[in-house]
Design a binder for these strands. Structure first.
Lengths: 341, 341
DNA sequence: TTGAAAGCGATACCAG
DNA sequence: CTGGTATCGCTTTCAA
């Protein structure tokens, strides 16, 4: 049983396809109320749905956008994607998801694919849009937006939180609560998205507070996972047993720190305080629950989707720096206040 | 600057569009090696990419599939989606994601949308495909697959683990390790996917072991979250302080149980053992780490994608029951063995 | 080996 | 208010 087309409807309703088309698109004129009734009815009973692909071809509008993630597994990207989809929904766009695995070849492949599929815009999430992709991006000639990422290309609006400032604030939060011997559990130092800026924020906060800041106070790993946090904490405790507070570059790492502290009989927050980063659901689940820097990923995703859709209709093109805030839970010990509260 | 089309390439290369098309599709015949070289070159330098939409229209193959989730936020759906995308990749399909929010109207809307976009197949994940959707599904006339869900319609292959059996095994695991006073922290009893079958598995295991099984041993919530686990544990401890082991319907709930136990000064696993469900990353992060039933969501996603693509090319149509296994960590106390080990 | 031309399903302009 | 028709970009016969 073949799918019915506009032609079938026209034949069945004894009108021209032009008329059916007008009714379908609700142009308001070009048909009488009576024919409309009649045509709508036959459409209904035939179970006809217009072919969006044919429409796209003639209108030159695919009604789709593409989203590139290193990997959609994981809380963070999941929430972002959710937000993106919600926004796309509102603007009547469908979304293609792609997992680049951070592989440049794969990424380029996907961009070409999206190009061929005539997407109207692309969200590049959690990655770095390098000059490598300049050519294809330019050719595609549709709006791009980076989400919690970074772009080496010009004129690409971005949605992100100011990681440096956020980590600065987190560090400062510990300092304000009386901590003077701090360490950081960081991601890869050359990760220009979540590595470098967060380390920098940590350092600046220490420096501004006239606190010692040696590189040995930062223990970094190749990723941001639970195990990385455990290892990092172990090495910190070896080199700096005097530490009383730790800034982690992700909630998972912070959870690793708490877990390892527990294993070593070090109490959190009595002996050592911990502040996390992201405010994923995990932060509420640790024991003790995690004080952390909040990034609202679903909102960020929504805003990214929204921004992209606005760019598509030529409405707006400004970057958005999302505000962050510190969510206070139980993992930080508050002793004497130091300086302005 | 308009996008260049096959026509432009033809003109530029001084051949007919038919020839360009043949070369593009690598038909192998219909052009000389020399023209091929030449055409490929001009394609390259023009930066031409074929319009997939026009291709879809004439080939009647969109090269896309749709995935419906209640919500892509959350570890579980994220991992599934990752697997799906990976499989789709292999079969050369792009994937549209849709968040139904478990709303029937929205779901129907998305199905229609996917229909119009001419998707070649649909994965219906973590939800129930009711008779409500029968009409549209039938009309679409493309393969459907349910993933970790349930279908009231005929002939829809499914990928899932046997929830009843898995919970049975989990319960039995506790029994084998000497526990006789058990309780369950369950999701919604009328949730036919992750509610009813898991409760049933729990009950059957108790019954088969000749252990008491009153309905008061099961505390259910409207969802499967951390907070639900906390509440449930509280009420269980009120009604059944004698309990020594708990079966949770999700890792998050199990984490809630552990957290609440902690707050009440009840030790895990010394005073009460806990077994989770899902084996999400969270399970490794709790203190103590969680013994749990493993579902490999990324693999399930991959298999679902694979299965769907095989259905599309008419290759295979059998359901897949994924095997589950129990991942032993630290949250279960092993006392005397009881019965066969 | 090539090219001309007939569609794929829908839109929109132009006549009537 | 209506219908005929060119067109969107590409594939695929059918002749040459």
């Amino acid at each position: 049983m073949k799918k019915s087309t506009i032609k079938d409807v026209a034949r069945e309703a004894n009108v021209s396809i032009a008329t059916v088309s007008r009714i379908l698109n609700n142009t308001g004129k070009g048909y009488s109320d009576k024919t409309k009734q009649h045509v709508m009815q036959t459409i209904e009973q035939m179970g006809y749905f217009p072919n969006a692909i044919a429409r796209s071809l003639i209108n030159n509008e695919s009604g789709t956008i593409g989203v590139l993630f290193p990997a959609v597994s994981g809380m963070v990207s999941a929430e972002m994607l959710h937000g993106i989809e919600a926004a796309a929904q509102v603007y009547g766009k469908s979304v293609f998801v792609c997992n680049t695995l951070s592989d440049p070849d794969k990424t380029k492949h996907y961009l070409q694919l999206l190009y061929e599929k005539q997407v109207e815009g692309v969200i590049f999430a959690s990655g770095r849009l390098t000059r490598n992709f300049q050519k294809i991006v330019k050719q595609m000639n549709v709006p791009f937006v980076t989400l919690s990422g970074i772009s080496d290309l010009e004129n690409i609006p971005e949605i992100k939180v100011d990681d440096l400032k956020a980590t600065y604030d987190a560090t400062n939060y510990l300092i304000k609560h009386g901590h003077t011997k701090l360490a950081m559990v960081s991601g890869p130092p050359h990760d220009s998205i979540a590595g470098t800026p967060r380390m920098e924020g940590f350092k600046q906060a220490l420096t501004d507070a006239n606190l010692p800041c040696k590189s040995s106070q930062i223990s970094w790993s190749n990723a941001f996972y639970f195990e990385d946090g455990k290892h990092a904490f172990r090495s910190i405790m070896k080199n700096h047993p005097e530490i009383t507070a730790i800034v982690a570059a992700s909630d998972e790492m912070a959870a690793g720190v708490i877990s390892e502290a527990n294993a070593q009989g070090i109490r959190v927050p009595e002996d050592v305080s911990v502040i996390g980063y992201d405010n994923t659901k995990l932060a509420a689940m640790t024991v003790p629950s995690l004080t952390t820097v909040s990034q609202e990923f679903d909102v960020m995703g929504y805003r990214a989707g929204e921004l992209l859709c606005q760019c598509i209709i030529g409405e707006k093109t400004d970057s958005i720096i999302m505000k962050h805030k510190i969510i206070e839970r139980e993992s930080v010990k508050k002793t004497k206040a130091r300086g302005v509260v």
